Computed example of a mutant assay.
Amino acid sequence: MTATMLAGRLNVDTARFALEEIPVPEPGHGEVRIRVRAAGVCLSDVHLVDGSLRPRFLEESTVTLGHEVAGEIDALGPGVPEDWKPGARVLLQAGERCGRCARCVRYTEPCLSTRTRGVDYDGGWAEYALATHHTLVSVPDELPLEQAAIVPDAVSTPWAALVSTADVRPAQPVGVWGVGGLGAHGIQLLRLIGAAPIVAVDPLESARARALDFGADAVFDPGDPELPRRVGAATGGRGLDAAFDFAGVPAVREQAAECLAPQGKLTLVGLTPEPLTITNGVRFSFAKQQVLGHYGSSPAHVEQLVELTRHRRLELSRSVSDTMPLSEAGAAVERLQRGGDTPIRLVLTP
């Protein structure tokens, strides 16, 4: 009899999410099977369920969700290097190179068609998950798997946006719009980089309090008509060298752009299908400002963050707002859809 497991499956054509019993997968060449111990629940998962975000490369109509995954190696397929052993604690990179484009054939540049775990192929909202061995990252014993699981995306996406896309430097004034899972870590990481001052903007009082707890120097309500002036005052009249939209809201982007300093950069991290509008295009061009798109992170960013936790430069115990059993994945999605308590990250524990 074929062994089965519980998995959170989404049919992207019908927008039906359900927990189903499916066969336990067998690892192929170069693959390992992971016994999933923790899997993060992200707003991107919610957007997949509600249909506002659709996979670009999914070859089937149904996929197991979950791109933030950690657990233990359960079984090895042929061709896996001897360094990897059953029982090893690992987290999984959130994506795979496509293996087909010219960049992948040369393997000298980043792939521009990266497949995302839990979006374009089966992810970790399941008791077991498959991963190619080169997407494994060892987890140090001192890092709980619930925290390790969220490093790919919840922590690595803002880290990559800060240090690579926007190239934030010490003592630069920076603004963060949206203090949810990505924004809270963005503030924490900006503090690590040495950005100053760090300004956080969120409509929820609880999120503004969180921003201060994570290291923001000033917090504001986006509904304040005096917000651009207040940001200017907080930065000594300079404005923001870098602003980050972690919310994925069109109005946020216009407001953030208005707060930029000359040659300032607005980086779009939160995802939305809505149009991007810069109201005062003349001012934007005259000031030589920039809008930068951002998505995900590279394997190196995840590895850097694991090292930072290993050496106690980065502490993630506040990042897991709650753990829930895999059987309550639907409830976790609904909790994020409702908003209100604005968790940093919910984590499923199969």
Rank of each mutant, 00 (worst) to 15 (best):
D122F: 00
E26Y: 07
R97A: 15
G30V: 08
P81H: 10
E82V: 15
G28C: 10
G194H: 08
T267V: 15
L276S: 03
T14Y: 10
V249P: 00
V155I: 15
G339P: 05
L76P: 01
C259F: 05
H134K: 11
G194D: 08
A88P: 00
P197R: 08
L266Y: 04
D120M: 07
A331V: 12
P203S: 08
Q304G: 04
V231Y: 01
P27W: 05
A247E: 00
F246S: 01
F286L: 15
T116K: 05
V155H: 03
D202F: 04
G178K: 03
A209H: 05
R103T: 05
Q255I: 05
R54N: 13
M1C: 06
D45H: 11
D224G: 09
G95C: 08
A184W: 00
G270R: 04
S156F: 06
L6V: 09
C101A: 12
P299N: 14
V63Y: 02
A218C: 09
K85W: 08
S156N: 12
N280K: 09
T14M: 13
I73A: 04
E60A: 15
Q289L: 10
G71C: 09
R33D: 02
P25D: 13
Y107G: 06
V179T: 12
R338G: 04
E307S: 15
G87F: 07
V137R: 06
L204K: 14
E258F: 03
E68G: 04
D45S: 07
R54I: 07
G124I: 05
P197K: 13
H294P: 03
R37A: 13
P170T: 09
A216K: 04
S61L: 07
T309R: 06
P144Q: 11
A211L: 07
T4K: 10
P110N: 14
V320E: 02
A129E: 02
Q188A: 13
L227T: 12
E59P: 00
G118V: 05
P203R: 08
L204M: 14
V49L: 11
R335H: 12
V12N: 03
G77N: 06
G118P: 02
A211K: 03
P225Q: 12
L48D: 01
G175H: 03
S206T: 14
S164V: 12
D141Q: 15
V151G: 00
R318E: 11
